[in-house]
Design a binder for these strands. Structure first.
Lengths: 149, 149
DNA sequence: GCTATATTGTTGACGACTCAAGTATATCCA
DNA sequence: TGGATATACTTGAGTCGTCAACAATATAGC
């Protein structure tokens, strides 16, 4: 029970922290940043909506809305898929890649700071391993590969 | 980095799960449940708004809105504080306590199930301890004392 | 005592997400 | 081959929470 409550509180506090920084410095929400990151790591810098949904743990409509925003910002383009007319790819554009690059440095540093001052490297590994067993935490698009946030 | 991303994903997935159950079975959001729980554990079943904000990791306005909802449901009453006219207490009413009691059993069982099938008792203790070091995760109103969720 | 600052709470406007419902396409199988 | 089911996505309406601005009260310092 303690673990669940602390997961809730810790997530809320940390997300507020990261969100404020990211928004103030780069005009991005956490979800937008994460989406850009997943796209950047993806093969051909493109992902189906459904895969983004799984990777980000959002509903399909949440992804539609997120991509609308990133589209308006000029960070992402929609592209239809020949071979399956149902899917609409999200493709990372240069502007998106650039914004991601700008944001990544400070964002990653902030994350490292928060965790670094609370855990040893061993503990951080333990924590990551334990959290990785939660549903959604290990979904497809390996969100840790690039090690960028 | 992995820890942060997995915290995000794990939280999203777990919260969606718990939220769906709680909403379907008892018409409560996770925040509403947690608020009732904190009130129930509090001295005199009452808490200042600012303390709820700290305990739940919400903003003051978030708490105002949360208490508006709980008020309309008849679960909570507002009460002014003699001695400090700024504060407005939230007081748990019987209906609120009853709803909490109804919800607690299934909710706690669901949480135990999700965690129990993924971690040993030792690991669960580790996880809780590690998460407890995060900001917000250890705030005031000891959210683990009652061990109810 | 009285002003400057801090604390507590509320409100309006808005953002990000969800759900339910709907459209369009693909796949399965009798 | 063709009808039932599953998959991918979008849309309208609604919810939960935020921020910025504000009002009211309390506290501290001179």
């Amino acid at each position: 029970m303690a673990a669940w409550v602390r997961l809730l509180r810790g997530h809320a506090a940390l997300r507020r922290l990261m969100s404020a920084r990211l928004q103030a410095d780069h005009g991005l929400t956490v979800s937008e940043y994460e989406a850009l990151l997943l796209l950047d790591e993806a093969d051909g810098a493109r992902l189906r909506g459904v895969d983004l949904a799984a990777g980000l743990v959002l509903t399909p409509s949440g992804v539609t809305r997120l991509l609308d925003r990133l589209g308006k910002l000029g960070f992402v383009r929609r592209e239809s898929c020949q071979g399956d007319a149902r899917v609409s790819y999200a493709v990372l554009l240069d502007a998106g890649r650039q914004r991601l690059a700008q944001a990544a440095c400070g964002h990653v540093a902030a994350i490292r700071a928060v965790f670094g001052e609370r855990y040893t490297d061993t503990e951080l590994g333990q924590l990551a391993e334990l959290l990785g067993r939660l549903p959604g935490a290990s979904t497809g698009a390996s969100a840790c590969a690039g090690d960028a946030g």
